[in-house]
Write a protein that binds this DNA or RNA. Structure first.
Lengths: 141, 141
DNA sequence: CCAGTTGTTTTGATTCATTCAAAACAACTT
DNA sequence: AAGTTGTTTTGAATGAATCAAAACAACTGG
């Protein structure tokens, strides 16, 4: 898996470095993490890494299409490894947990606004807001 | 209109103050403005107003449902007076201009994710990304 | 395998958007 | 008109992210 990551980096035309492999490893297969969390995780096995390096790596990998970046209102930017598919997100209003949504009813949803107002649209981003399972369980705020 | 604004403030249980009326006036009927732009506009006719006051007013009015706040990735928070309808937004990838989209094809769109993953969803927010008319015209960046 | 080139990371500082807190003040109530 | 409460001012602080220069490490080509 780590080996595959090196391969992916090379394929994207990026140099294979320890911080980059560590960031990819830190993000794991799934989940949504902010720069700071990635930093903490990376530090665990590569203690010399700086936060700025993490920002740099995240930007490089996002630019290369190896990561996807989302910015839900009220949260810092989050990064995830699931790319390519245009999946959407569920965000908890209370704890800001994020979950993936495979896609919406029927076909490619929402890609057709009623009136594009002169815009050449290339992406539709859908964010669902609600209460996650555990926040629903504990009503005590 | 300014009179109506006073009425609206009262109806929302908020005190009617000069900064609040000025903020509502600055936002006008349509458009999307960040706190700083609102501040500049408010200053024009109420020069003693502080930026913090503008933040406070924007938060109060948003909380009261008189304003809607959106946070497109890469932009500071934007405020608009169109509330109540759940309309969506078109954001220009290049100049970050925002336009309203009345709604998506057919019916209330996208409100039904394929799998809500245990979330109790109450809102679906759709953001379309693309190039606006004028950014399409001038390819020279 | 070594040296050069280029891209990456470190180090340190800075910006931008926003929030916090206490004191001064103004709007609504009686 | 005076009091109470909510607002605004003033001043400072925070969090997230970016910028810039110097130190460094990965890939190229010899």
């Amino acid at each position: 898996m780590a080996t595959d990551d090196a391969e992916r980096l090379r394929a994207a035309g990026l140099k294979v470095t320890a911080p980059r492999k560590a960031v990819l490893a830190a993000l794991g297969g799934q989940g949504h993490f902010d720069a700071d969390t990635v930093f903490e995780r990376v530090r665990g096995e590569l203690p010399t890494t700086s936060l700025q390096a993490v920002y740099g790596v995240l930007a490089a990998l996002t630019g290369a299409g190896l990561l996807r970046r989302i910015e839900p209102a009220g949260s810092p930017a989050l990064y995830e490894r699931r790319t390519g598919d245009n999946h959407h997100h569920l965000v908890c209003t209370k704890c800001h947990t994020v979950a993936d949504v495979d896609c919406v009813v029927g076909q490619p949803p929402c890609l057709e606004p009623a009136d594009a107002g002169g815009f050449a649209i290339h992406t539709a981003e859908v964010t669902f807001w609600g209460l996650c399972e555990s926040c629903r369980s504990e009503p005590a705020a």
